[in-house]
Simulated assay, not measured.
Amino acid sequence: MSNLAEVIKGAMSLDVRDRAMRAEKLLASLEELSEEEAERLWAEEAQRRLEEYRAGRAKGVEAGAVHAKVDKLFR
């Protein structure tokens, strides 16, 4: 199989309808994950984000700021 960069490059060369159709299929495939697989992936993502934060490559956001942004978005 091609590497990810090649796959993305190929997908980006498609017309918008074909890209949308492939995006929809990819997103639908995520719905098919088992609960255990989904939990494992979320745990890996949480670990990655923690490492980014500890290394100073990501900043924390206060909960109040997050709540205010959510309130603004859903008004």
Rank of each mutant, 00 (worst) to 15 (best):
M1K: 06
M1A: 05
M1H: 14
S2C: 05
S2D: 04
S2N: 01
S2A: 09
N3A: 05
N3V: 02
N3S: 04
N3E: 09
L4Y: 01
A5M: 08
A5W: 01
A5P: 00
E6T: 05
I8K: 01
I8Q: 02
I8E: 04
K9D: 13
K9M: 08
G10V: 00
G10A: 11
G10Q: 10
G10S: 09
A11N: 12
A11W: 13
A11G: 10
M12E: 12
S13L: 10
S13P: 06
S13Y: 08
S13K: 11
L14F: 15
D15S: 11
V16W: 04
V16L: 03
V16H: 03
R17G: 07
R17P: 00
R17K: 11
R17N: 10
A20W: 13
M21Q: 14
M21S: 15
M21Y: 13
A23V: 10
E24K: 13
E24I: 13
K25A: 15
L26R: 13
L27N: 10
L27C: 05
L27V: 15
L27Q: 14
A28I: 14
A28F: 09
A28C: 08
L30M: 11
E31T: 14
E31Y: 10
E31G: 14
E32L: 11
L33D: 00
S34P: 05
S34R: 07
E35D: 08
E35P: 01
E36R: 15
E36G: 09
E36T: 13
E36Q: 11
A38Y: 07
E39G: 01
E39N: 06
E39W: 08
R40K: 12
R40V: 08
R40D: 15
L41I: 05
L41P: 01
W42C: 06
A43P: 03
A43Q: 11
A43D: 15
A43S: 10
A43N: 11
E45M: 02
E45P: 00
E45K: 00
E45D: 06
A46C: 02
A46M: 03
Q47E: 15
R48D: 11
R48V: 09
R48A: 13
R49K: 11
R49F: 13
E51I: 08
E51A: 12
E51V: 10
E52K: 00
Y53C: 03
Y53R: 09
R54D: 01
R54C: 01
R54W: 03
A55M: 09
G56N: 07
G56I: 02
G56V: 00
G56E: 05
A58M: 04
A58F: 04
A58Q: 01
K59P: 01
V61P: 09
E62V: 03
E62Y: 04
A63E: 10
A65Y: 03
A65N: 12
A65S: 14
V66N: 03
V66R: 03
V66G: 02
V66H: 04
V66M: 04
H67C: 11
H67R: 12
A68S: 12
K69S: 08
K69Y: 09
K69L: 15
K69V: 12
K69M: 13
K69D: 11
V70S: 00
V70W: 01
V70Q: 02
D71W: 09
D71L: 14
D71Y: 07
K72N: 06
K72M: 07
K72C: 05
L73Y: 10
F74G: 05
F74C: 05
F74Q: 02
R75Q: 07
R75M: 11
